[in-house]
Each structure stands twice: as C-alpha cells, then as structure tokens.
C-alpha cells in the first residue's frame, strides 16, 4: 500500500507535524488539562471568551501524545473560535470524526475525542457545573 494510509491522511499528518495554535494563551478565560491514562496522551486547552462571556474567541493547546490526539486538538483550535459554549457542549464524537475527515478505528476514538472532552470539561468547570481536577478518558487498551 506504499506510503498512503487510511487513517493518517495528509491533513492529519499536517496538523500533527505543524500544529496550529500550539502553546499557551496569555490570559485565557479558562484552561483545562486531560489525559488518556493508558495511552499517555495529554492535552491542555486554553480558551479565551469574547466580552459576551459566551462566544469563543481564541483557543490554544499544548501537550503530547499520538498523532490522532494532537491533530484533533490542533484542528479543534481552528474550529472553535466563533462558536458558543453551548455549541461546544453539544459537540459529539461524530462531529470530531467529521472534522478529522477520516475513519477512526474504535480503539482510537478516545484519542480523537480527548481535546473535545478537555474543552467541554473546561467550559463546565468555568460555568460551575462540575468540579474536577483533570479529565481522564475511560477505558484501558489491554
């Protein structure tokens, strides 16, 4: 099959090798960190809201892990600005696979959705809906 890959298409590899909005924001409205304990993927999302307190203005991420988790985070930082917190809260797994544009195998879904989960949990903590230190995704790979 040569160098082509079903899951690791050009867009994924591009975002992994050249992550967008990678780093930290100077004054984020909220920040949150999560990990896949079994994979070692970690992601921190910084989110800055507009003055309305509802619209996402800027997003940055940092962390490390597999290409799927990091590319997903990078793409999410481009997707989220302009959307509202309630739209973020409604994002599901299908939205993420659609954003990635590739079929993610079942065992890798948790890598793909980590960044979204971190952003959603960060927003919930910001709104006072939940109290957690860190997001941990479910499941063990062994």
């Amino acid at each position: 099959m040569g160098i082509g890959s079903d899951m690791y298409r050009q867009q994924i590899m591009d975002h992994y090798k050249n992550p967008r909005n990678h780093g930290r924001l100077e004054s984020p409205t909220f920040t949150h960190t999560g990990e896949n304990p079994s994979c070692g993927d970690t992601i921190t999302m910084d989110v800055q809201l507009a003055d309305d307190g509802e619209t996402i203005e800027r997003v940055a991420f940092s962390g490390d892990g597999c290409a799927i988790s990091q590319a997903s985070a990078s793409m999410l930082t481009q997707r989220l600005p302009g959307t509202t917190l309630s739209e973020l809260a409604e994002m599901d797994t299908d939205d993420i696979t659609e954003m990635l544009g590739v079929d993610i195998s079942p065992m890798r879904i948790k890598c793909a959705v980590l960044a979204r989960q971190v952003a959603q949990d960060g927003a919930k903590i910001h709104d006072g809906e939940i109290e957690i230190e860190q997001t941990k995704t479910e499941g063990d790979d062994d």
Binding site: M1, S5, D6, M7, Y8, C39, G40, D41, G65, C66, A67, I68, S105, R108, C111, D141
Partner: peptide, 12 residues
C-alpha cells in the same frame, strides 16, 4: 512515533 500510531499503521 507513538506506539498507538505505529500499531494503527502496521494494522493497515
């Protein structure tokens, strides 16, 4: 290359 990326590519 993360082990999970590697195994996915090997699987393909």
């Amino acid at each position: 290359v993360h082990a999970h990326d590697l195994s996915s590519i090997l699987n393909e």
